[in-house]
Amino acid sequence: MMIDLILLSVLLIMVIWTVMAIRLVRSAVGLALTSVVLSILMFRLNASLAAVFELSVCAGLISVIFITTISFTRRMSKSDFKTRRRQRLSKFWPLPLIIIAAAILLFWRHFPSEVIFIRVPAENVRDVLWNTRHIDLFGQVLVLLAGAFGVVALFKENKK
């Protein structure tokens, strides 16, 4: 329980850093670190396969996508950076306060105190994924196709 609390706090701090970082690249790195902490939490919740996916795909692939996108767009100059820092501080200083206030409020009210869970017999994730949810696999194939055609449509040069 204590370890969970610490991990969750680290997760939250990572997220706040991601949101408040001034340079976009740092935000992307913060997002990757958030993913890493999240996957540790998922390991602790016995969801090891999903955790591996989270670690490799979200922390790895998505950061690559973000950093590529960011590197294609224009970099800020030094003077830009300074004005931007002031602007961002003025916009984002309420966030930590709001979060702390919300946390205090939620813990104080013992937010969802009595929730009844319907327990079910455990099943292996591989069995679920491969034996009872074929339709989801088909859906994943379709999503990947959509993404592939999307990239073709967005990046191919038009022959004029």
Partner: peptide, 28 residues
């Protein structure tokens, strides 16, 4: 919490696949 980790993980993995494709298209 419900012991239904098989289903939950299957959902999470599918969700991660969608997330990647979504981010690729959005980045484009």
């Amino acid at each position: 919490l419900t012991g239904n980790l098989g289903l939950a993980q299957a959902i999470a993995i599918t969700l991660i696949v969608i997330e990647v494709v979504f981010m690729v298209v959005a980045g484009g």
